[in-house]
Design a protein around this nucleic acid. Structure first.
Length: 434
RNA sequence: GGAGGGAUGGCAGAGCGGACGAAUGCACUGGUCUUGAAAACCAGCGUGGUGAAAGCCACCGAGGGUUCGAAUCCCUCUCCCUCCGCCA
């Protein structure tokens, strides 16, 4: 959530900032109006409440003094005020709920540094990397044998079985087998080990409560995107960001503990409701994929460095895997609702000739922390402040799998995998047909 | 799934219808004392809402109820502990 005080004190500034991401000014104005109504009702209720309380004290005093007549008269008066108070309280409650619902739907204020723009076409490419670039080699070109899409390679080598995945769970649920399944396992272990120096490894639950998805901003606005188990009021997590952000929900952390960093590999579930019919082949867009996530709670001062650390780590993995990739600075209009600034990493997949988003590294300022009520007590003893949250994928394995298989395809149809995975693959870096 | 016990401030822990936002201890902060430190002593020390401010209001796991008045009584739920059952 945005800070309601900010909307109260300077609604136009908030409206101007949100306009960069396409939010109509009327939405901000509406929140400001609901807030005025709510506060008026609250004041009325509290005044009544205060009177009931002081009358009640007088009842006690009168009774103690032995004046039963006065006590009962005061009690009558208090009872009648209490009835009024209940009515006022209900009205204030409804008004407060209206403010909160409206606030939950407002996206975060974008960073000043996020470039202007309306959509994906306006994102700014900030750099590109390819193997050998540092030694002055030119950007790679790809041989014909690398121009085969991974779904064909996967089927031919018997390492990806989309058809049987569909039999089990419907389309866009991949099933990996043999060396393909092992490759996936290797990637996760490789990445978790790489982050172990500074990020505590977590294995969170795969399902989460409504409240948990609300904290990150995935609910209430994007409920169509998530799988829900209504009977148990649980949702399948769309990313490890969801459980990790709520690890310290409702807590006040000592400043000295920050930054607190976590890494986790989880399955990620997405309904892809708005994308029906798009990218349906292979692993381009699937309902379930594994991903290693990096996450940190920070003070506001630490947030930038923590954001850059996650970006550097995600890039470092891509470099270790020898993949050709680019870094995009997302424009205000393409930013996720909770994010203030995001860098996307896209790996080039030569077989399908596309740049595939394999990581999204975001700074959420205090937007998620306010929803989750995660604060820290400053070392100088001041009152608690909201933390900042940052996170990023490092990395999303389905698309990395696709990119590795296409990039590593050799003239004889086998696939050569990067040396960095050797220890995790038992030294078998070549996948050949069975 | 069944039976019983519990949930109170950063932690421990009292309170079980009226002056309780809450005893006490520990921790923490400031001070006195000391060459310095420890000890001792003194003082302070929860969060949020609202208000220009004084203040007022809310919060004792969550939600509802009884009452003039609820941390305290009643109901429902959640979580934790013990035992039984079941289970990987």
């Amino acid at each position: 959530m945005i800070d309601l005080h900010l909307i109260r004190s300077d609604p136009r500034a908030v409206a101007t900032a949100l306009a960069r991401r396409g939010v109509p000014a009327a939405e901000v104005e509406r929140v400001a109006e609901l807030d005025v109504v709510h506060r008026a009702l609250l004041q009325r209720q509290e005044a009544l409440r205060s009177e009931v309380k002081s009358l009640s004290k007088e009842v006690g005093a009168a009774r103690k003094a032995g004046d039963a007549t006065l006590a009962s008269a005061l009690a009558d008066q208090s009872r009648s005020l209490g009835d009024d108070e209940r009515v006022a309280a209900a009205a204030a409650e409804r008004a407060g709920e209206a403010v909160r619902s409206a606030m939950l739907l407002l996206p975060n204020v974008p960073s000043h540094e996020a470039p202007d723009g309306e959509g994906a076409d306006d994102n700014v490419e900030v750099r590109r990397w390819w193997p050998g670039m540092d030694e002055g080699r030119p950007e790679p070109t790809y041989a014909d044998h690398q121009r085969v899409p991974h779904w064909d390679i996967g089927e031919k080598l018997g390492i990806l079985d989309m058809e049987r995945g569909a039999r089990l769970a419907g389309s866009m649920f991949p099933l990996y087998r043999g060396a393909g399944a092992r490759l996936l396992r290797a990637l996760g272990a490789f990445a978790l080990d790489a982050h172990a120096d500074a990020y505590e490894e977590i294995r969170p639950p795969t399902f989460a409560l409504t409240e948990t998805l609300t904290s990150t901003g995935h609910l209430p606005k994007f409920s169509d995107e998530a799988y829900q188990m209504e009977r148990d009021d649980l949702w399948a997590i769309p990313t490890a960001e969801v459980p990790l952000t709520s690890m310290h929900r409702g807590e006040i952390l000592p400043e000295a503990d920050l930054p607190i960093r976590f890494t986790a590999q989880t399955a990620c579930f997405r309904r892809e409701a708005g994308a029906a019919g798009r990218d349906t082949r292979g692993l381009l867009r699937v309902h379930e994929f594994d991903k290693v996530e990096l996450f940190a709670y920070t003070t506001p001062d630490q947030a930038f460095e923590a954001h850059m650390d996650i970006l550097a780590r995600a890039e470092s993995l891509l470099q270790d895997l020898g993949l050709h990739y680019r870094v995009l600075d997302l424009c205000a209009g393409d930013l996720g609702a909770s994010s203030a600034r995001t860098f996307d990493l896209e790996a080039y997949a030569p077989g399908c000739d596309r740049w595939l988003e394999v990581s999204s590294v975001s700074w959420f300022s205090d937007y998620q922390a306010r929803r989750a009520q995660v604060r820290f007590r400053p070392e100088d003893g001041g009152s608690p402040q909201l933390v900042h949250t940052v996170n990023g994928s490092a990395l999303a394995w389905a698309r990395i799998w696709a990119t590795l298989v296409e990039t590593g395809r050799q003239a004889d149809g086998s696939v050569l995998l990067p040396e960095a995975l050797s220890a995790y693959l038992g030294g078998r870096l070549v996948i050949e047909g069975r």
